[in-house]
Write a protein that binds this DNA or RNA. Structure first.
Lengths: 344, 344
DNA sequence: TTGTAAGCGTTATCAC
DNA sequence: GTGATAACGCTTACAA
């Protein structure tokens, strides 16, 4: 069975007693074809067990029915388990789920691509220009990433999830991160918190800096010009460490905003170790409303980040861009919402 | 830039002043080639910005440098958010991370495929036989799935993660689920638990039935012939519901084993609501050692499921099988370990 | 060692 | 309507 040559269009044509071209027309549902033959051909297809070869088809149509999900990372060290953490985090899965929810119905496949070096990025863009995939959804992790620009300059249909760090004429979907952080600030204030701190993400990535800015701005407007801040890297452990440091320097703090749920989880652990009860002694607000938020105890009050919806929209945007490359460059910004649970 | 035709082998050949065949040889590093030309050709490649077209190459070599990650689900209803949950769970991401850890280095790409109906399965096997990908890693979710057999009969190199429900001559990696559950049982017993219950997964999926069997067997050997059991579906919520039911029927229970961490999380919530303290009143053991285990509070005592390692091994196995289709069918079974934290 | 030419399995442009 | 036939961009005998 393995060695046996698979039936081709030619074989079907022979069985049906027509030309290769006619079979192709029938299969692709092109109208100008005698209904009689139509039936004969489909019969031959069934009898031979023919399956179109997508590779051959793509080679000539220049369409693959595949979009790439590109994870653009900075230099990857083999001993750095970062990628492993990245995949294990809820973020990646939520994006994939959102993308698949729209791609599945359209029969579009998703090819995962990870690029860590500029060389890999160049190769990727080359492959995409060659029609390896019809377009790309990009998850850009490094603070400054040449990929978005390379993609647009290469004329590759692409949509970013999260705005590009520097201005590039490229489609993207994003969350109003600053508004989300402001929501967190307002909530802590409304609760009566007086000494509020923040566990931020790396200051050089856009999503992170927006949250920092939004949080600070909102507090400043209400008279809290100074916000003790520790920087984490979005992992649980970094959140725990940051919380300890914060507690050491600010023993009387009564409210903390963590720039994502995972770090909030770490903060919860640190607070518990320090004997502070949440939310009585210290109120905690997270960000993302990932599965971790409801799993936490106390359940996290957090900012909802509709990642699945955003990914789905990115997929739709990409499909539209592929259909019409001349389409105006557009961006879709989602509004976050405060989800109140037990931690604040 | 978009409309411009990309350079082909022919173009490079013209610039280098050699034949297309020679360029091809140089690019593919075939030895019989004058070092002089070697340099000339690479120079021409650089000057033209040539990138090989993988599609065209694959069409003739019958190798794509891609493996498919197939998620085989049972009938999917569009209103069933199951897939969304599946992707959001740590399981999916851990598998992807494990696979990528070995595929990335080999320059092999991963294409995600989701099949929910037999028709889709047929199409998938057809595409794979046609060389759409070199092989497949299969995550088979339904209790009884025709896909593994279809794959072997189609001569498609494939490796299952988790043993097939019915015997099929196919490579797979799996966890000794029964041993893992026995570990949990022994631990609860060693703690002195007297009334032990279980929150199991669906009884018809292999991993789940193995855990049930292993847990029951181990308890039975120590005189606990009767184990109150509730069935969940591996989600947090189902675990919470199951725990409530268990508590209602067995108010004095002092130990519970949940067949995965997510359900254990739900159990923790139900116990907290019922005013039982963990582990003092009730000891809880989970399964998987996913990120949820350490995020839980109290942190979960659980059974380590080395999913990343298993996925990596599956990738290695698949690569080997692709290299040598005649290789003996093999299976690799991993041993679970008890990870003691705070919940038991 | 290098070039010529025959495919790989399709779709698409023509005539008929 | 239908059938030759020329691409698509590449690898690989087979010759030279």
């Amino acid at each position: 069975m393995r060695t046996e040559r698979l039936p081709t269009l030619e074989d079907v044509a022979r069985v049906a007693g027509v030309s290769r071209a006619t079979v192709s027309r029938v299969i692709n549902g092109i109208r100008n074809v005698d209904p009689q033959l139509h039936e004969v051909v489909w019969d031959a297809v069934g009898r031979t067990g023919y399956v179109p070869n997508r590779l051959a088809r793509s080679l000539v149509t220049r369409r693959t029915g595949t979009v790439a999900l590109v994870v653009s990372d900075s230099e990857m060290h083999d001993d750095d388990p970062f990628m492993g953490r990245f995949f294990a985090d809820p973020y990646f899965g939520r994006v994939v789920g959102g993308l698949m929810s729209v791609l599945r119905d359209k029969g579009v496949q998703l090819a995962l691509q990870i690029v860590g070096t500029d060389d890999q990025r160049r190769r990727l863009v080359g492959d995409l220009r060659n029609g390896q995939a019809d377009g790309a959804i990009v998850l850009s992790l490094p603070p400054v990433d040449p990929l978005p620009r390379m993609l647009t300059e290469g004329g590759v249909p692409a949509v970013l999830i999260g705005r590009p760090a520097d201005p590039v004429p490229i489609d993207y979907v994003d969350l109003a991160n600053d508004t989300g952080a402001a929501l967190a600030a307002d909530h802590l204030l409304a609760r009566g918190c007086q000494r509020i701190a923040m566990i931020s993400g790396p200051a050089d990535v856009p999503a992170s800096s927006d949250r920092i800015a939004g949080f600070r701005r909102s507090l400043a407007r209400r008279g809290h010009g100074w916000v003790p801040t520790e920087t984490g890297n979005f992992t649980r452990d970094s959140g725990e460490t940051a919380m300890r440091t914060l507690l050491a320097g600010n023993p009387f703090l009564d409210g903390v905003f963590a720039a994502n749920d995972l770090m909030a989880l770490g903060a919860l652990a640190a607070l518990r170790d320090a004997g502070r009860s949440v939310p009585t002694d210290v109120a905690v607000v997270g960000f993302d409303d990932s599965s971790a938020a409801v799993a936490a105890s106390p359940a996290l009050t957090t900012i909802r980040h509709p990642l699945e919806d955003m990914a789905a929209e990115a997929a739709r945007l990409l499909l539209a861009r592929i259909e019409d490359p001349a389409m105006r460059v557009s961006s879709v910004i989602y509004e976050p919402a405060l989800i109140t649970r037990d931690s604040a």
